[in-house]
């Protein structure tokens, strides 16, 4: 039951983008089309799930048993940077044109602050293995939900008559803030 609560809470109540305001850069940068939003959401969900597992393993199997808690941030940065390099190398080997096309977006996916935030929250809340996995997966799905909703709204906004000064970043930030207010409605659903 607790796992279900963590999962739903990570998606709706404590959404990484709309509650913690983490991962805003890819959220605003890659939410112009639903196709791109889905692929970005899946990529972030994968990276968040793996980060949750790996950071849990580092924290519980290496740092805590050896009394090295104070190295938490440094080791998480190191681990996340290594994971990013691995994902980059993998994509470059699997499909060079995809790697060429992704350009700056690949580091944007994998090094956004939501990933570091997730690793620190897993350690801070002292989650067990299953809880960490469910939290990572739920957080990624929450990010995906938020970015797809944003992309759907922005596709509609292309057809709307928006005042000139609000076009672009202005209206995107207003939409994001209204979405965050709407998601506040889920607070109280899970304690």
């Amino acid at each position: 039951m607790e796992l279900v609560a963590i999962f739903i809470s990570a998606i709706l109540v404590n959404n990484f983008v709309l509650y913690y305001f983490l991962g805003i850069c890819p959220f605003l940068g890659v939410s112009k089309k639903i196709d791109s939003a889905i692929s970005m959401g899946l990529a972030v969900t994968f990276v968040m799930t793996i980060t949750a597992v790996v950071s849990w393993a580092i924290n519980n199997w290496i740092l805590i048993p050896h009394g090295l808690d104070y190295l938490k941030i440094v080791s998480f940065i190191l681990v996340i940077a290594s994971l990013v390099q691995l994902v980059e190398m993998f994509i470059r080997k699997v499909s060079p044109p995809l790697y060429q096309a992704l350009g700056i977006y690949l580091p944007l996916i994998t090094t956004n602050c939501a990933i570091m935030g997730l690793a620190l929250l897993v350690a801070l809340r002292e989650y067990g293995f299953a809880e960490a996995v469910v939290f990572g997966l739920g957080s990624g799905l929450g990010f995906t939900l938020a970015i797809i909703l944003m992309a759907a709204i922005r596709e509609q906004l292309d057809l709307a008559d928006i005042p000139e000064p609000l076009k672009g970043a202005g209206i995107s930030l207003i939409v994001a803030s209204i979405m965050a207010l709407a998601f506040m409605g889920f607070i109280g659903m899970i304690k």
Binding site: I38, A43, L98, L102
Partner: peptide
């Protein structure tokens, strides 16, 4: 590219 990314990360 989007289809390939969805396949890859999916």
């Amino acid at each position: 590219y989007n289809q390939a990314l969805i396949l890859l990360f999916g």
